[in-house]
């Protein structure tokens, strides 16, 4: 990259210009190039539509958790308590880990089937960072905490919904008639 002050070439990521010693660190900060980007960097997860979710204790029986998911149409259940989530159990886990042995597993604790220590983000995190994590980490649900307490989950759909608000003429919201 070329130094904006003296046009001397420096290796990418250099903190200062080799030639004139000007500070180059600032150049590495991501800059928003559009209003959408600015909004993603400045808005926090509080702006997204957080969904309520259910929390079960690690010793809850598999059968009970499945019944909750079925009845309340949740895509996942969190395991632990409000201030200490230790696992997540999703529709995907139902298919992958439970499908062939549901009958014999029905009375086993959910802790044997859950995904341990799911990644969680604080509600004051910028939306852009959460989008990055969901995109790279292959997460469908991301539990969100506020002051260390579980506040809800965000889904890929909430993210799609946020992004589509920027193109209301192209992507209509669910509320409007088709």
């Amino acid at each position: 990259m070329n130094c904006p002050y003296c046009n001397h070439w420096n290796i990418p990521g250099a903190d200062t210009c080799e030639n004139c010693r000007q500070d180059l660190a600032e150049l590495d900060h991501p800059q928003a190039s559009s209003k959408v980007e600015a909004s993603m960097m400045e808005s926090t997860l509080a702006k997204l539509n957080l969904k309520p979710t259910c929390i079960v204790t690690p010793d809850t029986k598999v059968g009970e958790v499945v019944a909750i998911l079925q009845e309340r149409k949740f895509g996942c259940a969190l395991v632990g308590d409000v201030s200490n989530i230790v696992g997540i159990f999703s529709e995907r886990d139902v298919l992958i880990r439970l499908a062939d042995r549901y009958e014999e597993s029905i009375n086993l604790p959910i802790s044997e089937f859950m995904t341990l220590n799911p990644e969680m983000l604080d509600i004051n995190t910028p939306i852009a960072y959460a989008l990055n994590r969901m995109s790279i980490g292959d997460f469908r649900h991301l539990p969100i905490t506020k002051n260390g307490q579980l506040e809800g989950i965000i889904s890929l759909r909430a993210m799609l919904s946020f992004l589509s608000e920027w193109y209301p003429d192209l992507i209509k919201s669910k509320m409007e008639p088709a």
């Binding site: 980007e37 960097m41 852009a128 995109s135």
Partner: peptide, 9 residues
């Protein structure tokens, strides 16, 4: 949004 999304701490 590659810069914004992937480079943000």
């Amino acid at each position: 949004h590659p810069t914004t999304v992937y480079n943000l701490p």
